[in-house]
Every structure is written in structure tokens, then in C-alpha cells.
């Protein structure tokens, strides 16, 4: 049996974020932060000699306040879903939906919120839903960055000048409705395409719409033009042909051996439109 980390010499268990940062600063290129460790199964890191495990940092908390949902970076996806379940609001439901479509039950019990964001890839599900909400990341316990900026700059760049994601904050003020959809070859497949759409009504403000997609480019992406499109056509049935034109102008899919680019563009367009119609139906109910 091949070892996951055959050269691993040190398994560090710092008890403070400062301690983890110190280890990171001292570390060599062969040091890595370990969240849930699920990515180790896909990409064995043969050169890794040191891991900095996050389980003693007390980051596995869940706080649902009136304005914010705070998810500690060490919280597993499974635990997050179980704790979100009793909260019947649009933001909680959207996050739960994305989590329930991620990987399998045993993997969700290992994958952490922080690990999913630090290791975000084209197929990541949760970041798509978070991007369709107002989400801020806390880095190293005291610095904040909008998720959108984090994804645009890339985790490697953002985290190289600081350290580790410690918390995710999702706004839940106003009346939020949201929908997440994903397409893969089976229920546990990595996303060939995914979409999340949210709509927020706050007293005294116009409705705000956010659209995010995954599965197509390096990291989940927000589609501002599509948001405008929905704002202008919000009551009617979606003109899917115009929407496809718009999405095709905004997104250039990366290659995926499972399907052609054109097919995936069409797919994501249908998912966006379905999400939107879901929201309209929910509004009518």
C-alpha cells in the first residue's frame, strides 16, 4: 500500500493561530497546512515532510447570528450541514444544498470549510454557493477579504502573504432566496457545470441578484452581466437563447475530457435559468 505522504517527518498540532503562522513562516516548501486531508487522496504529495494540522485550533465552530452565519474553517462540511439544518433561511438553505451535492457522506465528514476554500478548484461546489451570497473570509483570525476577491486573486497568492483561512462569514440580512444546481455524470461526480443564483430583498433597497458558476473555469466565477440581465427581465420567463449568448461572451471554459466546451456552456446556461425559475417559483409560493 502506498503511503499518502511517504516522506512525512513531522505532524504539527499547533494550538493557536499564531503558532500555526510561526510554523508556516519557519517551514520550507515541503510544509503544508492540513485541513480535512481529502485532497491527499487525489494528489499524493510525495515531497511533503511537514504538515501543520488544524484540528487543535478550535476552528470547528458554527455561529448563526441575526446578521451573519459564521463557519469556522475547521468545521467539516458534514457538521456544517447538520448545524445549518434547523435554520430556515435562504442563505442557510443555499449553503446546505451545495454541501449536500459535494462528494460523499464520509468525505463530507472529513472535508473542512477552510480546506475547500484554500484548495478551491474548477469543480468546487460550496464556493459557488458562497459566491452567490455575500461572503467574507477571515484570514489568520484578523484580516478580512471578500470571497470574490479571494477567488479572483487566487488562494495561493492571498495565502502566501498571510497564512490560513480561519473563518467564513455569510450575511443573512434581508429576505434571501437562493438556488444551487449541479450537473455531473452521477450524484457524486465532480461538477461538469454548476450554478447558484440568489436574490435578496432588503427594506428600502432594490432587489439584489447574484449569479455564480462553477465547473467551467479555474475557480468559481460571478457573472455580473447575467445579474444585470435578470434584473432587467426579472418577472418573465427566461430567454435562454439570449442567456446563452451572454454566458458564452463572459465565460471561456477550460477543457474537460468529459464534455465539449459548447456543451458545457449550454449546460451551465440551462442550470442558471433553472435556478432563476426556481427562485421565481419560490417567490410565487
Amino acid at each position: 500500500m502506498a503511503k499518502l505522504l511517504p516522506r512525512l517527518e513531522y505532524y504539527h498540532r499547533p494550538r493557536t493561530i499564531e503558532g500555526a503562522k510561526k510554523l508556516l513562516r519557519q517551514g520550507k516548501r515541503t510544509t503544508m497546512i492540513l485541513g480535512g486531508g481529502v485532497s491527499l487522496g487525489m494528489i499524493p504529495r510525495k515531497q511533503i515532510t511537514d504538515v501543520i494540522a488544524t484540528e487543535k485550533l478550535n476552528l470547528d465552530y458554527f455561529i448563526a447570528g441575526e446578521e451573519l452565519i459564521q463557519l469556522g474553517a475547521g468545521l467539516s462540511l458534514g457538521s456544517a450541514a447538520r448545524q445549518l439544518e434547523p435554520h430556515d433561511d435562504g442563505a442557510a438553505r443555499l449553503i446546505m444544498e451545495a454541501i449536500s451535492r459535494t462528494a460523499t457522506t464520509p468525505l463530507r465528514n472529513l472535508m473542512t470549510i477552510g480546506g475547500v476554500l484554500a484548495g478551491v478548484g474548477p469543480w468546487s461546489d460550496l464556493p459557488v454557493a458562497l459566491l452567490a451570497l455575500h461572503t467574507t473570509l477571515v484570514i489568520d483570525g484578523d484580516q478580512k477579504i471578500e470571497l470574490e476577491r479571494f477567488l479572483l486573486e487566487g488562494p495561493a497568492k492571498v495565502l502566501s502573504r498571510s497564512g490560513l483561512v480561519t473563518e467564513v462569514q455569510v450575511q443573512r440580512t434581508g429576505e434571501i432566496s437562493g438556488s444551487f444546481m449541479k450537473f455531473g455524470r452521477n450524484t457524486t461526480d465532480l461538477a461538469m457545470a454548476s450554478a447558484a443564483v440568489s436574490r435578496r430583498h432588503s427594506p428600502g433597497y432594490d432587489a439584489e441578484i447574484r449569479v455564480a458558476v462553477g465547473g467551467l473555469v479555474a475557480r468559481p466565477k460571478r457573472l455580473a452581466d447575467v445579474e444585470e440581465f435578470f434584473l432587467s427581465e426579472r418577472q418573465g420567463e427566461v430567454d435562454r437563447s439570449s442567456l446563452l449568448d451572454l454566458v458564452s461572451k463572459t465565460v471561456t471554459p477550460r477543457p474537460d475530457p468529459r464534455a465539449e466546451k459548447e456543451y458545457r456552456l449550454n449546460l451551465v446556461t440551462q442550470l442558471i435559468a433553472d435556478c432563476w425559475e426556481d427562485l421565481l417559483e419560490e417567490g410565487q409560493r
Binding site: 481529502v38 487522496g41 464520509p106
Partner: peptide, 26 residues
């Protein structure tokens, strides 16, 4: 050995996990 099949599932604090992806010190 990659968390796909579930043959190695054990309960960790009551929840099923793939033990092939859990480093023992955890």
C-alpha cells in the same frame, strides 16, 4: 485508498469517514 469506495469506513466521533484519508495522528 483514495476515498472513493468506502470499504475502509470507520466512525470518527460518531460520523463515518474514509480511514484511508485520515492520518493516524489526527
Amino acid at each position: 485508498g483514495t476515498g472513493e469506495c468506502g470499504a475502509c469506513v470507520v466512525l470518527l466521533d460518531g460520523e463515518p469517514v474514509n480511514s484511508c484519508l485520515v492520518l493516524a495522528p489526527r
